[in-house]
């Protein structure tokens, strides 16, 4: 796989604002993610990071502004339609289908390109048989790439936490996304798991040639992986730049450590 040659942003957010009642959770947010970029979004708790992700994946309709996926505006689209445009995401607290086998977790994620409906599943048409075989084969291949084949018939709830995290990322990648949103992938992992996660994300980034945008509180994860970082606080963008610039940015230090004027 190669990085697309044309330079159209995979994700473009223009003047995004989100109000919840009287609360302005996100205010005038702008970003352009170019193909192949690995970018970070950080900020203190409650800064509105996850809200931005929820807006991109279509859970909320923005109060103002526009979100474009590969040039296509997502206004008014339901989340499953946004996913079909090529946006996959993981969640801060892992959301796998816990009582469904690992293999089925991958298979169900292929709904956006099933190519058959209720009628075909009832009569087991040729198309149904072909698609089911293809989906099962591709799911098995994906599990193989991620070294998860041994767990194919297990329930995710029985897997170690780090493996569940990996499976959730594998499931997100099974939809062949252009843009992968990772919401705190290191949350709840121990330090050796985190090192493995960093290697995994780096490997995914090259192997799948996917644009990655991640929220993370573990600064070493962000600093090691991201080439560009955006910092928000109370919904406002307070800084943007490469890891070094962010580390030394006065507004970021204030947001994280507090102001010394009382």
């Amino acid at each position: 796989m190669s990085i697309p040659t044309e330079k159209r942003p995979v994700l473009e957010i223009r003047n995004l604002t989100q109000n919840f009642g009287g609360l302005r959770a996100v205010s005038d947010f702008n970003i352009q993610l170019m193909p192949g970029e690995l970018s970070g979004l950080i900020g203190p708790n409650g800064a509105g990071k996850t809200t931005v992700f929820n807006l991109v994946s279509g859970f909320y309709q923005p109060s103002e502004g526009a979100i474009l996926i590969d040039g296509v505006p997502t206004g008014g689209l339901k989340p499953h339609k946004v996913t079909a445009l090529g946006v996959a995401r993981t969640f801060q607290n892992i959301r796998l289908w816990n009582e469904m086998t690992v293999l089925d977790n991958i298979r169900v994620a292929q709904h956006y390109r099933l190519g058959y409906g209720f009628f075909h599943s009832a009569v087991r048409s040729k198309r149904y048989m072909r698609r089911e075989a293809e989906i099962a084969r591709e799911a098995a291949e994906l599990l193989d790439i991620f070294h998860l084949t041994q767990y194919a018939d297990e329930f995710p709830k029985n897997l170690p936490y780090g493996t569940q995290r990996k499976l959730e990322i594998a499931r997100a990648l099974s939809i062949h996304p252009k843009l992968l949103l990772l919401d705190e992938p290191a949350a709840g992992l121990n330090s050796s798991d985190i090192q493995e996660l960093i290697r995994l994300i780096r490997w995914i980034h090259e192997m799948f040639a996917v644009t990655i945008w991640m929220i993370e509180h573990q600064m070493d994860v962000i600093m090691q992986l991201c080439t560009r970082i955006k910092v928000i606080d109370f919904g406002e963008t307070i800084a943007e730049g490469n890891p070094e610039e962010i580390c030394n940015h006065p507004a970021v230090i204030t947001a994280y450590l507090g102001d010394d004027t009382i």
């Binding site: 169900v108 292929q110 499931r171």
Partner: peptide, 15 residues
């Protein structure tokens, strides 16, 4: 079954 176990995950995974 995906809806039963986690509707949000189902919708976000293109169901």
């Amino acid at each position: 079954i995906a809806i039963c176990q986690d509707e949000v995950a189902a919708e976000i995974m293109s169901v």
